[in-house]
Design a protein around this nucleic acid. Structure first.
Lengths: 124, 124
DNA sequence: CAAGTGTATTAAGATGATTAATACACTTAA
DNA sequence: TTAAGTGTATTAATCATCTTAATACACTTG
């Protein structure tokens, strides 16, 4: 389901949170999909179950998962997280753009990036 | 000169690097400005000299400082870092925009952010 | 009831950041 | 020349955090 990057110096639970978040936000995991159990994902990643448990708790607090005791963790519906995620990304983008401007990046350069990402033809 | 954020979970030396980098990139510290000595900045931040030394070494490797043995650390000329910094920021922006798009942020929303940052009037 | 699930607890190990105490070579100014 | 200030290097100890390990318990399902 996910692959750990051992060059990444962040804690494992944080990597797991990030990767699963991206799978959910990106639509790879639909709402109400059953997640791997704490123990099975721990085995799959050759990691301690506590580490996965910690990641799952964080994802639940972030609104990406819901838990049914004794049954497992499931992907939460989009309405639980879509709005706040968009707001979070807008804020991060704002800060990034401020730093880019400060570093000497021009508005034109950023417009190019934007067009690249949104795959639209440019005509000046 | 800088203030540490104790809520920030990153190592101190990393915070120092970031803050000083932003001062230099943002133009608050001109080329050839003498930086505080390792020992004095350590006292100012109530931190061990080794921690500051580590930050200065990193900043030198990144091209932001140059050292004259026995005299101190000085801000490097813009030509040493401006180009690579712009490239670095463009790459970071590209990745950020990809994630924003994936999260459901529209191109229009990003254009608004861009205009805000570059302080230009919008007319649709 | 047995197996699988989430959850909680406690202890130990491992890694990295930070501090502490020195030491040495260099430059500057008295 | 000398004293003070500079960068640099080394070694050890401390501390925080991540991670593992070994359990235990309540719940759900077949």
């Amino acid at each position: 389901m996910i692959i750990l990057d051992y060059r990444d110096k962040r804690p494992i639970y944080e990597q797991v949170v990030d990767k699963l978040e991206r799978l959910i936000v990106g639509g790879a995991l639909e709402a109400d999909t059953k997640m791997p159990s704490v123990r099975s994902l721990a085995v799959e990643l050759s990691v301690n179950p506590n580490t996965i448990q910690r990641a799952y708790v964080m994802l639940e607090q972030m609104g990406y998962l819901y838990t049914i005791s004794g049954r497992g963790n499931f992907v939460a519906p989009e309405s639980e997280w879509r709005g706040s995620k968009v707001q979070e990304m807008l804020k991060e983008c704002h800060e990034m753009l401020l730093r880019a401007k400060e570093a000497g990046v021009t508005k034109e350069q950023l417009l190019v990036q934007l067009s690249k990402v949104y795959e639209e033809a440019e005509h000046d």
